[in-house]
Amino acid sequence: MTLVQLEYIVAVDTHRSFVLAARQCFVTQPTLSMQIQKLEEMLDAKLFDRSRQPIVPTEIGEKVIAQARTVLTENQKIRELVVDRKKELSGELKIGIIPTVSPYLLPKIIHGFVEKYPLAKLVVWEKTTEEIIRQIKSGLLDCGLLSTPLHENNLIEIPLFYENFVAYVSENSVLADKKSIVPKDIDLDETWILNEGHCMRDQVLNICQRKNSTKSSQQFEYNTGSIETLKRMVDQNNGATILPELVLEDLTAEQLKRVRYFQSPEPAREISLVTQKSFLKRKMIGALQKEILAFIPQKMLDEKQKEVVEK
C-alpha cells in the first residue's frame, strides 16, 4: 500500500469519476485504474462500485477512503512542520466564500494579504454554503468563510465577526416612515429576498418568523442570488429588502437614507472561518484571519446586544 494509491482512491471518491481523478492527479486514467486495482487486490476488497454512474464507494470502500483521508492529512502535517520553520508564508490556500459576504469583504483584504505575503497564493471560489461544506470535507477547499453555526460535528468554526441585518426600503414602503423597526414590521409580501439555496434567505425568513411567501399579490416574482440585484429592485420597483451591514459601506448618501435599523437586540449573522477538525495550513489560515479582523469595525467583533439568526 502506498501514499500514491491512497491519493488516487481519495481523488476518485472526491470527483466520482476515474477520468476527473486522473486529471487531478496528473496521470493517465489507465495508470490510476491499475494502481487502484492493485490496492483492491492487496486488500481483497472492492472499493468502488464501477457499475454505477457516477461511481460510488462500496460499503467497505467508504471506510477505507475515510481512513485514507486521515493518513494523507497526517502525512501533510509532517511537511507543514518544515514549512512552518520558514519565516515567509508560502503556498496555496483554497477558500470558499458565500456570495453574500464575498463582494463586501474580499476586495478589502486581498491587497493587504498579497502585499504582506508575496509567496502565498489565495485561490477563491464563490459557492453556496452546502457546496463549501461538501468541498471542505472532501479536501477540495482548505477553509470557508460562512455564516454559522453549521451544526457539523466534523468541522471547526472560528467566529470572526457579527454582522447586523438592516432593512433597505423604498419611499413607498410601509417601513419608510419608521425611524427604527422590529422584525414583526417586515411584510414579506413586499420584501425582495434571495432564492433557494442561500443561507441568508433562511435567515431573513427566520427574522420575519414566517417560512412561506410567494408574493402572490404581485404580478412579478423574481429569483436571484445577488444582494446587489435586490437593492436595485428596491431602488426601481419599490418594496423592501434585508441587507447585511457590510453592504452599507458601498451605499451613496441618498441610498443610506433608505436604511432602517432594527431595535436592540438587532438581528445579526455570525461569520466564521470553517475548516476540517484536523485542518492543515494553520499558519496561512491564521494570517487570513488576522487580515480579516484588521478590516472589520470594532463594533462588529462583539455579539453583545445582537441576536444571532440561524439559517
Rank of each mutant, 00 (worst) to 15 (best):
L175W: 00
E157V: 09
L160R: 07
S173N: 06
N172T: 11
N153K: 15
N172W: 01
S170L: 05
F161C: 13
E152K: 08
E171L: 05
S170W: 00
N172Y: 01
P149L: 03
N154F: 09
A176L: 02
Y162E: 06
Y168H: 09
I158Q: 15
T148M: 03
N154S: 14
F165N: 07
H151A: 13
V166Q: 10
L150C: 06
A167E: 07
L155H: 03
N172P: 00
V166I: 12
Y162F: 14
N164L: 12
S147H: 02
V174I: 10
E157G: 13
L150E: 10
F161I: 12
S173I: 04
N172R: 13
P149D: 07
H151M: 10
N153Y: 01
A176W: 05
V166H: 11
T148V: 05
L150P: 06
I158R: 15
V174S: 14
N172L: 08
E152G: 00
E171P: 01
I156E: 14
I158N: 10
E163W: 02
H151S: 14
N153H: 08
N172F: 02
P159Y: 07
L175N: 06
P159Q: 15
N153A: 15
S173C: 04
E152I: 01
P159T: 12
P159W: 12
H151L: 13
N172H: 10
A176Q: 05
L155S: 02
Y162K: 13
Y162L: 09
I156N: 10
L155V: 04
E171D: 12
E157W: 09
E171N: 11
S147Q: 09
S170Q: 03
V174C: 05
S147E: 10
S173T: 04
S147C: 08
L160K: 11
P159E: 01
N153C: 04
